[in-house]
Design a protein around this nucleic acid. Structure first.
Lengths: 199, 199
DNA sequence: GACGGCCGTAGACACTGTCTACGCGCGGTG
DNA sequence: CACCGCGCGTAGACAGTGTCTACGGCCGTC
């Protein structure tokens, strides 16, 4: 039998996926988990702490998807492509979780040791992007002096994140009625890759 | 004397800027505006509707800033640069409002005629970007066949939006310790522009 | 001058997050 | 074995929330 703690975050994940991040109340989670409304307090001192735990679960899931989807032996650009696809795929498929993971206002502060530690959670991914950019640069040197790899990686990630974000609320389907949905999204990912990492 | 309606959204804006989008309660706004907690209901049928009105105010402010900052006679690339700077500037300066404006979950649905009409609110800006991209392309034709202007514009906007988003929660200062803050942000904006719109 | 409609007030309701006091049941100690 | 202590979960209280409803006062109109 799973522990109460595990049941709580599992129920939380379920609710976040079903109703969105803001609709998830502490008491509702407790009900779903089959415990009284005061039980969560034994494990999470506050509502935010519970949400943070749920978000951490999301980061773990995402990391697992990366591990499964990205082939470390493929050329760096292909790895970046796979990573990007996984990223937006996760955001589309598990929208509520994705939103929650980056709603730093809902989560505990960075200085709080029990917080989600957004930086720590996203840093491995970011470092990986930086490393892949470096590898790609080494394999495809260009004429001019390019921007530092960290800047390019940040720009690429920002592009990726912005695409998923804007895609989420449908502002783009309208603007990109040219193709069917899946294609259009992929095109934006490709555009981001091409732009920041010229082949 | 300004109307109660105006005082309500003014008080709302003030609160959003001070405490963030989620901390703004209906009753608190009413208190700030000096009316009873039931008064807002006369003008806004629900809490979301009031938040939507506040968000609309934000879009109006942003549009006004664009009008003031972007010189229609400048070369397209410079116009895009000015627009981008204004965008991230607004986001940094009025963080709470910026967050609220794109928190579609808090706002009323798109199909609701009283909703914020996110698409309608952002469409003018998007169309402008598309047009500027076209103008730039006309002035600087490239060899290969480029992606459709709408796709490039969307990618550019996504990049811009992602930069402001990620910048917001400080994930980037850490990664880009290379320069002082203002410089780093500007570098990312420049990178986005360079990437999607090669000079 | 009486009337109707708009506007704002005030109370009720169900619900939320947090805090506190209370008991049950377990393991270790005398 | 009896006992105590303690971790775990329950249950109630409290302030506060958004929404709904009924109630007064003020206005312009007939």
């Amino acid at each position: 039998m799973e522990s109460v703690r595990e049941r709580l975050v599992a129920a939380g994940v379920e609710l976040v996926l079903r109703d969105g991040a803001d609709a998830v109340g502490l008491r509702e989670i407790a009900r779903r988990a089959g415990v009284s409304h005061g039980a969560p307090r034994r494990y999470f001192p506050t509502h935010r702490a519970l949400l943070s735990a749920i978000a951490r679960q999301g980061f773990a899931d995402l990391a697992a998807r990366f591990a499964a989807a990205v082939d470390a032996d493929a050329p760096p650009r292909e790895q970046l492509r796979a990573l990007s696809r996984t990223y937006v795929g996760y955001a589309v498929e598990r929208r509520g979780m994705f939103d929650l993971m980056f709603r730093h206002d809902l989560l505990r502060g960075e200085d709080d040791p029990d917080g989600p530690r957004l930086r720590e959670a996203t840093l491995p991914m970011f470092d990986r992007i930086v490393e892949l950019v470096r590898q790609h640069r080494r394999a495809h040197p260009t004429a001019g002096r390019p921007a530092p790899a960290a800047v390019t990686a940040a720009a690429l990630w920002a592009n990726l994140h912005g695409v998923t974000q804007l895609w989420g609320w449908g502002s783009m389907q309208l603007a990109l009625r040219t193709g069917e949905d899946g294609k259009a999204l992929d095109r934006l990912v490709t555009a981001a890759l091409d732009a920041h990492l010229p082949a």
